[in-house]
Design a protein around this nucleic acid. Structure first.
Ligand code: ZN
Ligand code: ZN
Ligand code: ZN
Ligand code: ZN
Lengths: 142, 142
DNA sequence: CTAAAACCTCGAGCCACTGGAGGTTCAACC
DNA sequence: GGTTGAACCTCCAGTGGCTCGAGGTTTTAG
């Protein structure tokens, strides 16, 4: 029987995160001691490892919920699992493509700035005027 | 004089976002009509365009605050602006590197799955056991 | 003058955690 | 068996960067 702290250590998770997963229904409510502390068994260790691994691969908690559900029903078709993974891959590729555009623009403006006063800063100039950019950047951020 | 709606249209921003920027001190408190509605001039148009463009390039609102400050003080050195841009570039590169690792793992597990039952799904197998992965993925998500 | 489009404020919700306050339980040691 | 201190508990708030909705007011075109 594992305490929540030991489960956390074994899976590289924070204690609060485990309680959060329980709260949102990703982890089951575990058994408790007479004093009310959580105690976990091997099934929960496996489940949390699965969740953490899927998170590291970028899956959302909603996606993980579905994946766990499929993993719990071995007789079902794996079509859905594959579809989730393909969606995830597509998203990753899209993000990479957008980041690549950002990289190019950032590198260019940094390279072109020769220092001095803010008035002549190439970085600030480009930010003030998108016409200085080579590419469009639809969407924001990431 | 621009209404908030027109300013929004011209910059590709949502009205609520403009109000949010005002709330967090990125946009100044504009003039108001007698009835209390916001009215903007060209300075605000420029400022919001700057903010939006910087957001498209992935800068955080905090970074943008500093960049705006420098842009407002042309006599200052541009060292700091360049440093902010370099930090941003570094972050972009790091994210791309991490996404590339995810891409490889996702592609591999999708390719190796030959369909059928969830019991034999390669996607689920890999999620259950990180030993099936080729790379480590420190950090989570993105 | 009326109708409807656009504006206003305030509050909550999103994702996936993370941190803290204030209190209780457990385990090890003497 | 008692003491200590680490680990646990619940509940609440905050993060970033918006986004939406309710319920009400102002503006503007016809
Ligand atoms: Zn510069
Ligand atoms: Zn641009
Ligand atoms: Zn499969
Ligand atoms: Zn792995």
């Amino acid at each position: 029987m594992l305490t929540i702290g030991n489960l956390a250590k074994r899976t590289g998770t924070k204690v609060q995160t485990i309680r959060y997963y329980e709260q949102v229904g990703l982890m089951p409510e575990p058994g408790r001691t007479d004093g009310g502390q959580r105690r976990y068994g091997d099934a929960e260790l496996d489940r949390l490892s699965f969740i953490r691994h899927a998170r590291q691969l970028g899956f959302s908690l909603d996606a993980i919920r579905e994946l766990l559900d499929l993993s719990d029903h071995p007789a079902r078709s794996c079509e859905e699992a594959d579809a989730i993974a393909r969606r995830q891959l597509k998203q990753v590729k899209q993000r990479m493509a957008r980041l690549e555009l950002l990289r190019v623009e950032l590198e260019r403006m940094i390279e072109e700035c020769s220092g001095g006063q803010a008035a002549d800063c190439r970085v600030l100039e480009v930010l003030r005027d998108h016409a200085e950019c080579l590419t469009d950047h639809e969407g924001i951020g990431t």
